[in-house]
């Protein structure tokens, strides 16, 4: 009896002292946090991708609460969560979410092994950033994809991968949240975030080469040479501008007419997720008149393969039998290389 009593008293006293210490400590070291931060945090995807520019989701949440004091959330956007999450966040903070078009990443390079030969061999750490420090890298193009997969390592959603056959990074649009981690990780700034577009359709210049035409031609068979033909066919909408020997399509102005895709003599412009063209409407006279020779390189490029369904992912390996023929050519080339 005595033993039990002593044990109870001792434990009780220890517990009491600890409780007092804990109580005092919690008072002394308490840090007040806006409860809304926790609430906002809860609706965020918790991917901690950093696409918003803040250190993780909790960082973004506190930024949101801070921004709420100034009355606007317009500078903030959670790309993986999209509009739905931003509306929820705005609801918690008693604000209105500004409409932000969901974005998706595109790799602006089509320089596969067969169109852009790897002249030297890089022997070192498999990192684009490190290969980029050697200067040119393995190919002759100073602007193209290095293919070591820094973007794939940066992507938290498994949406971007380097195709081992082409050694070019490819985006899986169904998984891409448009957070932009890959774009930040690319030492050559090849990856661009563009609006998803209606029915996921978009037209993009898939090249980043800023060299002059003659040099760009030598470096890669599907490079943009800055000839300006696309700018001319787009004179109605003025969506295409020519930078340093490089065309760029402004997605906000683009009307998806796909004229530029046909006009490009290098096959550097690609339309994503459009239904296959009917043979009837194919503007054969235009293509042959503008550049009779142009068709060959366009056909050779594996990216020229057109998906058969209206909303298809940017599938690396097309399955339609019609397409297979076109893809075969580069595959043969590859084994020859």
């Amino acid at each position: 009896m005595n033993v039990i009593l002593i044990a109870v008293i001792v434990l009780g006293v220890v517990g009491l002292v600890s409780a007092v210490v804990l109580f005092l400590a919690s008072k002394k070291f308490a840090v007040w946090e806006d409860p809304r931060i926790q609430q906002v945090s809860e609706v965020l995807p918790q991917a901690n991708c950093g696409g918003c520019g803040y250190p993780g989701c909790s960082g973004f949440a506190s930024a949101c609460v801070k921004a709420a004091e100034s009355g606007s959330l317009s500078d903030l956007n959670c790309a993986p969560g999209g509009q739905a999450v931003m509306e929820q966040v705005a609801g918690i903070l008693g604000l209105k979410a500004s409409a932000a078009a969901p974005k998706v990443a595109v790799v602006r390079c089509q320089g596969t092994c067969d169109v852009r030969p790897h002249g030297v061999e890089f022997d070192g750490v498999h990192s684009c950033k490190i290969q980029n420090m050697t200067g040119m890298g393995e190919t002759q193009c100073l602007y193209g994809c290095l293919g070591e997969g820094d973007c794939a390592a940066a992507c938290l959603f498994g949406a971007i991968k380097v195709n081992p056959a082409t050694r070019i990074a490819e985006v899986d649009e169904s998984k891409c949240t448009g957070c932009g981690s890959c774009a930040k990780s690319c030492p050559r700034g090849i990856i661009e975030l563009i609006p998803q577009g209606p029915k996921n359709r978009k037209v993009v210049v898939l090249c980043n080469n800023k060299d002059k035409g003659a040099l760009a031609t030598k470096e890669c068979k599907v490079s943009c040479i800055g000839c300006g033909k696309c700018v001319k066919v787009c004179d109605k909408f003025e969506a295409i501008t020519l930078g340093t020997n490089l065309a760029h399509i402004d997605p906000d102005k683009c009307k998806m007419c796909r004229k530029c895709e046909e006009a490009c003599p290098r096959g550097a412009i690609k339309a994503f997720n459009f239904p296959p063209r009917k043979p009837k409407t194919e503007t054969a006279p235009v293509a042959s008149a503008a550049a009779p020779k142009a068709e060959a390189p366009v056909a050779k490029a594996p990216v020229a393969s057109k998906p058969e369904a209206p909303v298809v992912k940017e599938a690396p390996a097309p399955v339609a039998p019609v397409v297979e023929k076109k893809v075969e050519t580069p595959k043969d080339n590859e084994t020859a290389v």
């Binding site: 790897h118 002249g119 030297v120 061999e121 890089f122 022997d123 070192g124 490190i130 420090m133 050697t134 393995e138």
Partner: peptide, 9 residues
């Protein structure tokens, strides 16, 4: 016969 090797020092 082969491609040149490039690496950092």
């Amino acid at each position: 016969s082969n491609r040149l090797i490039v690496s950092l020092s």
